[in-house]
């Protein structure tokens, strides 16, 4: 049995996808296929990173809904920003955003990114992501579950 034959015989064996959420933003124009996203850690405690990794893992598999994490903002359609924006990451965040071609989408993941979360009064903090750049989608939670992240991504990809 060749591997191509095996793939054909076995077919798709994933769980059926839950119903698609309401679209929150129109997919950036020009995006016909998958949404390519660059992740920026603006000052996270790495909790959101773990959940983000879970969301793109084989279990939750965000890629089947047309969202991919990529390395270069030059190839990206948008940013995923986690964590509160710290002084050190303020400038790099702006530079990264400037490197993403327009139209683009910014997704803030986690309480810190949405409203400073537990670091609200910390000394090294500039503000939430929305204080610094325009945010299109916010995913609350400390940290948000992979399901919540996947739902938020689907609301952008429309798949």
């Amino acid at each position: 049995m060749t591997w191509i034959g095996k793939i054909r015989r076995v077919g798709r064996i994933v769980e059926p996808a839950p119903a698609a959420p309401e679209p929150t933003v129109a997919p950036p124009t020009g995006v016909r296929g998958s949404l390519q996203l660059r992740h920026v850690d603006a000052g996270s405690c790495n909790g959101c990173e773990l959940e983000l990794a879970g969301a793109f893992s084989p279990v939750y598999d965000a890629e089947q809904y047309g969202a991919r994490l990529i390395a270069s903002p030059r190839h990206a359609d948008g940013l995923i920003v986690t964590g509160v924006v710290t002084h050190n990451m303020h400038e790099p965040l702006l530079n990264t955003l400037a490197a993403v071609p327009e139209p683009r989408v910014v997704i803030a993941v986690g309480d810190c990114a949405c409203n400073r979360g537990v670091f609200a009064t910390a000394y090294g903090v500039v503000g939430s992501v929305a204080d610094v750049i325009d945010v299109d989608v916010q995913v609350p939670g400390c940290p948000p579950t992979p399901d919540q992240i996947v739902t938020a991504l689907r609301s952008v990809t429309g798949k």
Binding site: E91, P92, N95, A99, E102
Partner: peptide, 11 residues
């Protein structure tokens, strides 16, 4: 569009 060169987030 002219944008600055990508320097991995650095200036």
């Amino acid at each position: 569009v002219e944008v600055p060169l990508w320097a991995c987030g650095a200036e």
